[in-house]
């Protein structure tokens, strides 16, 4: 005599063995099986046959596991709020730490302002690059390695040039007096960091395809064209 409870229980064991281990998913699929069997039985189909047909419609366990594995978990609101708190604390610690270092180096007020401006820019780039995503083209997968290598080669040269010039120019402009070599080095490093942040974030943006961008809640890209454009 066919027993639906035993049949569902046996089916769940098969799904578990195939790797579908999420209890909530199994409960939902079990409920679906029972609804389908009930519906078929109302049309006069034999319970055992209705069950085997329902199982067939659900699909093979390996296929179900494969499809569910594509559903990637997203971090929850709790994680996001803790992340924000951590980020603010890191920012405060960075500002205080830098202030201590700058004071120890006896940097002038204007030198410190220049350094903090650079640090702010790094922070803005690191937090805000995701919003610039519409302006980054979606690079075709086959061309992506070349695009990344070319991009980094060009930006490396730009960084080297800019980081050699910008801090000295900035320091000299705002001070209108020669600054010490140590302070210049610090400013060189920090302003170089701005360009480095720009370079890293742009590279990351180019590495991401449409799916990856959507997964992380970003714009899918291609603001200026309706269709996907390639580099």
């Amino acid at each position: 005599m066919f027993n639906i409870d035993n049949a569902v229980s046996e089916w769940r064991k098969q799904m578990l063995a195939a790797g579908v281990k999420n209890a909530s998913v199994l409960n939902e699929l079990s409920e679906h099986l029972r609804s389908d069997v009930e519906q078929q039985m109302r049309s006069g189909v034999d319970a055992e046959f209705a069950f085997s047909r329902a199982v067939e419609r659900i699909g093979a366990a390996s296929q179900v596991r494969e499809e569910f594995s594509k559903v990637r978990p997203r971090t929850g609101a709790g994680f996001e709020s803790w992340f924000s708190v951590g980020l603010v604390m890191l920012l405060i610690a960075t500002v205080l730490g830098c202030e201590l270092v700058f004071s120890a180096l006896r940097m002038s007020f204007l030198q410190q302002a220049s350094a903090f401006a650079a640090l702010t820019l790094i922070f803005v780039v690191a937090c805000g690059w995701r919003y610039a995503m519409p302006y980054f083209p979606v690079v075709e997968a086959s061309k992506r390695p070349w695009a990344i290598v070319s991009f980094y080669a060009i930006t490396f040269v730009l960084i080297w040039l800019a980081a050699s010039v910008v801090p000295n120019v900035v320091a000299n402009l705002i001070e209108q007096a020669p600054t010490s070599a140590a302070n210049n080095s610090i400013l060189w490093l920090i302003w170089g960091g701005v360009l480095m942040a720009l370079c890293v974030c742009s590279g990351l943006a180019l590495l991401m395809d449409r799916e990856a961008r959507q997964h992380w809640g970003m714009h899918a890209g291609g603001k200026f064209k309706q269709t996907e454009h390639h580099v």
Binding site: H32, S35, V64
Partner: peptide
């Protein structure tokens, strides 16, 4: 899930038939 499948089947006059087990990953 089950009701959604039945609704689509009914509204499309049986022309759209989803593989039952594949609807749930989409919903998730």
């Amino acid at each position: 899930g089950y009701a959604l499948i039945q609704d689509v089947k009914r509204l499309s006059g049986d022309k759209i038939e989803w593989t039952d087990g594949m609807l749930y990953p989409v919903l998730h």
